[in-house]
């Protein structure tokens, strides 16, 4: 039998002389050990696949794919509507789409973010990661990137469906391309911001049920409060304050950036009149949310022990 000759294994030889079928013995490994980079990428891919329930039993796939299905349904409907009614533009713009389905997107983040981080924390798996050739922050980055990429993937896919639908409905190609690219840009921002918020909350509440409830509550309630408050303020003439308050809602924040940098219409149907300062402020806010979220995560994981 093929034994790795690097290991002198006396026992099998002695046993074989008695006519016993003996096992090979522990095989040692002299092959390559891939470094941190590969490990991080591997964990990232693992996280990404886990978000969609890939590589897990069927039951785990239901929740994410149901939500994804709901997210993908409207673009097809919109294309149909555009064709049937002979519209010259989509009923819902590329940049407004994620906000219109904010509930679904929020639910997706709320249910998948805990899957990404709460399990390892709750079951004490972290010591096993820490004792491996990776750093604590590698784990944080891999998880963050995995979830953010997954979010981006579904938003981008939805945007692509919109785009394809629009083309099939024979809408003006130039406008569609611009809109599509803007939609992708907006998707990147949503992915980053929502991942940051979702993971921070999930890591703070490893009890699974609470994590989901907490994330969706924060996202939905804050969205609701910000929406109502900003409406009231604008209605009462306090436009500037109203617009800033509207950005307390992550969807409002990204939407604000789209309006101010890309000049598209606000998904909320309001007039965002903040100009250049507003654009800069909002962009800074996004950076703060994303970087701050990662920072908080790193701090949270620094507290995790090995023994």
């Amino acid at each position: 039998m093929a034994e790795n000759s690097a290991v002198p294994d006396a026992a099998p030889a002695a046993a074989q002389s008695h006519g016993v079928i003996h096992d090979i013995g522990f095989r040692h490994y002299d092959g390559e050990r891939l470094g941190r980079g590969w490990i991080v990428r591997s964990l990232l891919v693992e996280t990404f696949r886990g978000v969609f329930g890939l590589g897990r039993p069927a039951k785990a796939k239901i929740m994410p794919w149901v939500l994804v299905g709901i997210l993908f349904a409207p673009p097809l409907i919109f294309a149909l509507i555009a064709v049937l009614l002979g519209l010259d533009e989509l009923p819902l713009s590329y940049t407004a789409y994620p906000q219109a389905l904010s509930l679904i997107v929020s639910l997706f983040v709320a249910s998948r973010a805990p899957y990404c981080v709460s399990r390892d924390l709750r079951h004490g798996v972290m010591p096993l990661y820490l004792s491996r050739p990776m750093r604590r922050n590698d784990y944080v980055f891999a998880k963050f990137a995995g979830l953010a990429l997954a979010l981006f993937a579904i938003l981008a896919a939805a945007e692509t469906l919109l785009f394809v639908g629009a083309l099939l409905a024979k809408l003006a190609v130039g406008a569609q391309i611009t809109g599509y690219l803007q939609g992708l840009a907006v998707s990147v921002l949503y992915a980053l911001v929502l991942t940051s918020i979702g993971l921070v909350i999930a890591a703070a509440t490893p009890r699974r049920g609470l994590g989901v409830a907490a994330i969706i509550t924060v996202l939905a309630v804050v969205a609701g409060v910000a929406a109502v408050a900003s409406e009231l303020l604008i209605y009462n003439g306090n436009e500037t304050l109203g617009n800033y308050v509207g950005a307390l809602d992550p969807y409002g924040l990204v939407d604000g950036i789209a309006v101010l940098w890309f000049g598209v219409d606000s998904a909320f149907g309001r007039e965002v009149t903040l100009g250049f300062t507003g654009g800069v402020a909002f962009t800074a806010a996004v950076i703060v949310v994303v970087a701050g979220g990662i920072g908080l995560l790193m701090r949270r994981y620094r507290k995790v022990g090995v023994a």
Partner: peptide, 10 residues
């Protein structure tokens, strides 16, 4: 939780 929310909110 998620199904419940789908109902309540959506």
């Amino acid at each position: 939780v998620v199904f419940g929310l789908l109902y309540a909110l959506l």
